[in-house]
Design a protein around this nucleic acid. Sequence first.
RNA 1: GUCCCCAUCGUCUAGUGGUUAGGACACCGGGCUUUCAAUCCGGAAACACGGGUUCAAUUCCCGUUGGGGACGCCA
Length: 379
Amino acid sequence: MLNRGLAYRCYCTAEELEEERRRAAREHRPPRYSGRCRELSADDVRRFEREGRRPAIRFRVPDRDVTIVDALRGEIRFRAIDQDDFIIRRSDETVSFLLAGALDDADMRVTHVLRGDDHLPNTPRQAMLLQALDRGLPAFAHLGLVLDADHRPLSKRDGAATLADLRDAAYLPDAVRAALAHLGWSPPRDTGGDVAALAFRFRLEAVSGSSCVWDAARLEHENARALRALTADALAALCRDRGWIPPALEEPWRRALAAVQPELKFLAEIPHLVAPLLPGDVNVENEAREHLSGADVATALRVFAEEMENGRGFSDAVKIVKTKSGLTGRRLFQTAARRADRPDERDRDGRIGENFGAAGDGAARRARINAFPARTSIR
RNA sequence: GUCCCCAUCGUCUAGUGGUUAGGACACCGGGCUUUCAAUCCGGAAACACGGGUUCAAUUCCCGUUGGGGACGCCA
């Protein structure tokens, strides 16, 4: 490029360039390289070399406007006057991003360059380089940047700045993919969280050119959906990978997972949800205690115990308690569950753990709910 | 300061020179579940502003405002 006059050596030091920029700012001019090394005399060069300066190499920007085509925005025109001669090789002889990136893409036969629109100003420069080197241009598409709720660039604080953050938070990969697909684009019809369907419907040209706001609620929705879509084996495998399932409790765990799966939102909440369904002691949590305070509860508990002793089924006993105590809804069931804590007072519907019914028909779920409504306190 | 990009419900978006401006997430209400969740039904919710062009602008043009980005021997 030097031989062909496409580029030239620049002997300016970092300090000199910095000073140039400062002066420009003071005089309210745009900070541009002046081009002072464009036409150095042989004497100048000798002098600089004698001073021990190592030259950088700058691209001699042609004096004509550049029009690039962006797949999302159409033609964008950049004025020649706004472009200064940029460095393509540093004084330590390493090649700059602008040249290396453009050339590497060309060598790799990259057809589409998709990047954040913070790269838009680089595009005319890379286009000029490629044209000067008689290389073809790839298609460019510059996507809007993703912002947080305050319209600031996404940061660590948002907990979603990187894929690693999302993985650490145990979001399912498909949920992340689905949520990402909804940035700057949305499917013509809801795909039910099916990532393959999203991919099938996706069109680059349909992506919005504006920046968009990261929506954690969307991710949670997709995650809950993906969790529900998991097969029993897949769900169990995830739990096993996390070391949650003791070998001895494999079967109870699987039944409990089946009961709990329809309401899952996060992987991490599984141990919490499943615990009451496994054999062992049941603790009534704080919120449950609140619901259990008061005189009518005492009555209810007594009535419930009596009915159970008389051989009533759980459901029948609950109905009678309801009539006699006036309790309804949550308080009624908290009360019933209180008694159901006692293994000897559980009946077919109310029993906990290894005995409750098969999943899928709602029986297991109902059994769990009847047995442990206190889980309403978890959320 | 200079240049570039962008602008429809809270969020992601669909859409058209004449529409009841559509969907999804979130939200609110109801049904079902004797609680919760899921699900079903319903509701509230938007064309940033000002000029043009036009019989007619959310839609086309210009400007303003607002948001974002870039101005390094970083990538």
